[in-house]
Structure formats: structure tokens, C-alpha cells
Amino acid sequence: MRIAMMGSGAIGGYLRVRLARSGEDISFIARGAHLQTIRERGLRLLSPLGDVELPGAYATANPGDVGTVDLIVFAVKLYDGEAAAASMLPMVGPQTRVLTLQNGIDSMDMLSRLVPRHQVVGGATYISSFLEAPGMIRQVSGVTQIYAGGTGDPVIDQLRSACVRAEGVDLSVVEDIGPILWKKFVRLSAFSGGTSLMRAGIGKIMADPESQKFMEQLRDEGIAVAAAEGHPMPPDFSEETAGLFGALPSSRDFASIPITLRGGPTLPISGCSRGAQMRPSSVPRTVFALTRILRATTIRSWGGRSMPLVGTRMLSKRSAIRRRVDPAQSAISPPRSRDWVVSRKPAT
């Protein structure tokens, strides 16, 4: 099977290294210093499951160089999604499947504007990794779980077989990926927004009573939005989420946005922010209030472009606020202002 990794960073790069043992024909689509390093020295994975080096991996910045493939793993950051989707088209044939592992709930709809809907497969990953340096990916927990829709799809079945032959990829194929995407959406909205806003790991946040209450409000408001959109969370969701937050290792108990704030090239406004922002249902008052407070606060990316910092921008369409949420369920009681004021010196 011919596979193309559209995006070779934290997730795409991880999968490429792991799947090398499967014997499949896999190409990288990468760019910049990361691409140059892969070409010159290969790709290195630092992992608690064992470090792996992958020399001689094929990588290019031009999808047209690859040609038609059987499977595209779409793992680019959300701010690059539409441009990447357009550029991948030379690799798409009539039987190609596009498996999107982007965060959020709108990736399949976005891709379906360019690729026939039946060729787009939704997925979610719980692998915790990040791009530490060009050509180097660090995995910080032993979780290797990926979910994909497409039960009975021959291409996804081949991918599952490849994951079995490889090590470090636990792929589960489900009939309906929707509930899994929504559960991750709600969790990541609170997790990403809270750790970014307070510049702290979830462990420290949950240890403080005020901050813990704030995180619970973000979670509960996300639950309310999901329910208003016809995707209610299961009864044990809140308890399960608290357990997941508490089980995260201290080395990785924050989202990717805080890493970017410490020195990344571009601020990724969370897909968990973007997805619900345009939805015509209820909007959390807490998130909306923080959006207003932080609207004047900007950070400057390495490219010199000013960008608003609001990982919690999720769900902030003013005209729809509280359309279907009881105001009594959305009382605002955020941490003290000194705990979550955001600042960063502009890059020079």
C-alpha cells in the first residue's frame, strides 16, 4: 500500500517512524528545516517505548512528486488545513482514502469540499508527542491509541494490518467516529484553553480549588454546546475526564498551544476553538467573557504577524450566546485575574 503523510510533525512523523516496520511504501510531505533535516539525516523518535531512528526516509515539499497513493494521512495543523488540502490533490485518485487526524470536528467537512465524501475518513489520536527540533519527535507518554471510522473499508483494513505489523500504533476502527470526535473536542477545548490561558500544567491547575472550578466550567460549557448540537456526552463523561486529566504525566500535562507560546513559529488557534465558533447553537458565557477580555491581548509570531491569543475562542459567536443554555448553568467564576493574565514579548 502506498501511503503519504500530509504533515510530518508530531503525529505524521510519529506514524511514519512506527509504520516503517510494516514494509509499506510511505512518503513524507514536509517543509522548511524539518524537510531538510529529514533528507539529510532522517527522522528520530524519542519515546518512552524506545528511541527509533529512520534514515533515508523519502520526503518532499511537493505532493505532485509523490503521485497517486492509496491512503493520505492528513495530520497538518488546523491553520494550514485548507491550503494543505488543496495542495494534496495530485495524490488523490478515485480509490484514495484521506484519513484526517486533525483536532476538532470540522475537518471531514472541510476535506469533503475538495475530495468526494466517501473517500474521507475521520479519525482521532491520543498519542502525546511534539516536534522537539527539526527531524526530532518526542513522545512523552506510552499511549499509542488512534481511532478511525471506515468499518469495512478495504484501505482502512490494510492500514490496520500495517499497524499490527508495526509497533507503537494501536488502531481501532469504529463504525461511527462522530461520538469519539465530539468527546475529544469537548475535552481538548477545556484542556487546551485552560492550560494556555493559565500557562500551567493541568496538574497544578487542578490542585488549586479556584482553577479547578474554572476548568470544570469550561468542561461543562463544552458539554452544553455538544448537547445543543445533538451530541450529548455520556453520564460518566465528567468523572472520566477528570481522571484523564489527573493521569497525564507531569512532562506533558499541557496542550500543544502552550509549547507554541514558548517559542513556536505560529500560534495554532485550536480546532476545538474554531469548530464550535461558527455553530448556531449555544455559546458558553465563560469562554465568551474571556474572549472579550483577551481580545486586546496579542502575541507576535516569528513571522512578525500579530495574532490574537485565545485558545478558548471556541464557541464565541456573540449573536448566538445562551440561545439554548440555561444562564444558571453558565455562571462565570474564573480564577483571580493575576492567575491568567497572558503576556509574551514580541519576537525580534
Rank of each mutant, 00 (worst) to 15 (best):
T151K: 14
K183M: 14
S172E: 15
S161L: 06
V73K: 09
R187K: 11
I177T: 04
V92K: 06
G123H: 06
S161A: 15
V143C: 13
A124D: 01
W182K: 02
A84F: 12
I105C: 11
A166F: 12
R199A: 13
Y79D: 10
S189E: 05
E132S: 15
I177F: 10
Q102Y: 04
I105Q: 05
F130P: 03
P90H: 11
M136N: 07
G149M: 09
R113I: 00
R199S: 13
Q102C: 10
V120H: 10
P90T: 03
S196H: 00
D170P: 10
S189Q: 11
V76D: 07
E82G: 07
P116K: 04
I105H: 04
E82S: 11
Q102H: 08
G150Y: 02
G93R: 06
T144P: 01
R187D: 00
L188E: 00
D170A: 08
Y79A: 02
S129H: 02
S141Q: 04
K184Y: 05
A83F: 10
D157T: 14
A166W: 12
V143S: 05
P179I: 01
M91R: 03
V120T: 07
V174L: 12
G193T: 03
S172V: 12
A85P: 13
I137A: 03
Q139E: 06
F185P: 00
S112Y: 09
R160L: 09
T195H: 02
P154L: 03
S141Y: 05
D176H: 06
I146N: 08
L171M: 14
D153R: 03
K184H: 08
G193Q: 12
W182N: 02
R138P: 06
V98Q: 08
E132Q: 15
P116E: 07
I72C: 15
G150T: 03
L78F: 12
Q102K: 02
F191A: 02
I180K: 11
Y79L: 09
D170L: 07
F130N: 05
Q102F: 05
R117Q: 14
L171W: 10
R97A: 02
V121T: 12
Q158I: 00
S192A: 13
T151Q: 14
G194S: 14
I137C: 01
D153E: 07
